[in-house]
Design a protein around this nucleic acid. Sequence first.
DNA 1: CATAACCTTTGAGTTAAGTTGAGGGTCAAG
DNA 2: CTTGACCCTCAACTTAACTCAAAGGTTATG
Lengths: 161, 161
Amino acid sequence: MKIGELARRSGLSQSRIRFYESIGLLNTVERRPNGYRTYPPEAALVLDLIATAQKAGFSLDEIRALLPPDLERWEHGALIEALRRKVADIEALEARLAHSKRQLVALVAEIEARPDDIDCAANARRVLSRVLGDGVESPALATGDVRLLGKTGRRRAVRAG
Amino acid sequence: MKIGELARRSGLSQSRIRFYESIGLLNTVERRPNGYRTYPPEAALVLDLIATAQKAGFSLDEIRALLPPDLERWEHGALIEALRRKVADIEALEARLAHSKRQLVALVAEIEARPDDIDCAANARRVLSRVLGDGVESPALATGDVRLLGKTGRRRAVRAG
DNA sequence: CATAACCTTTGAGTTAAGTTGAGGGTCAAG
DNA sequence: CTTGACCCTCAACTTAACTCAAAGGTTATG
């Protein structure tokens, strides 16, 4: 099968398939005399597998390290270990998310619970000091940088003059 | 205070502080006749606030949209709304993580539950077809691409020859 | 006056996972 | 022999949030 058909079958773009090959993720590819790539039917399976693993949170690097050259000869131990580690990673992230969520919910409550007898600025100071004093260690000591979300991607202004 | 001291106090690098200014996130900055930046004491507060918001999952773009020019004059409604939306985002991500985790745990179980009377290759086929057939929609329809983790950042091989 | 410790700008590099475009070859049909 | 649908490579671009290096100005101290 040529790349166009593989792309249709797998739902991935041709450029993405070529890209996977270029980083050594896809080795199931031969060339015809004219230079065209030719794939065996199981290539679609491999691509599905890659896409599935990605959705589970594996990076392409991790996937490459785990994908065997032969689909029926997995590195059993390493695979199981990687899966377990990924579960642990997810649990760590879940804990961080839960923490962030608690903070945010508490913050909303704090803002809305403004006593009627203080003004806006005073409330701002009150909330601000609570936010910065509480639940967050010194920013200097921050260890992990995980990008969690970011749907609303407003592009930032051009920087050069 | 000059930038070096602000950096020490806030725990952020000088380059990061200049970067924040360059993208319009930090407006509390004056210049001395010699060109040096000078910050008022509350600049440290603003930086702490930015770092805290980042840890809660806000992008710099989002933070910029919410940070008021005056620390005591917040855009009340927009702020509350953004906080609530972020909580909802976190909940969506939590749901996806829980789903991924269930899949992974089930996969580990599936692999380890290999009946003693089939060989490795057959087990591979069995597990493989279960993984790809089950719980995951067609990859072509995949909607969301969220990078979850990625601690083990092995750099990929150089591509150009 | 030299030296060190500050500060400045600008431009380029980093990571991940691709996409896009230019420029060109291949192949079947009309 | 041309048109259109394929395919090829290679380089550059994308996003976010920075970092780093180069080249140079400023200030305090010996």
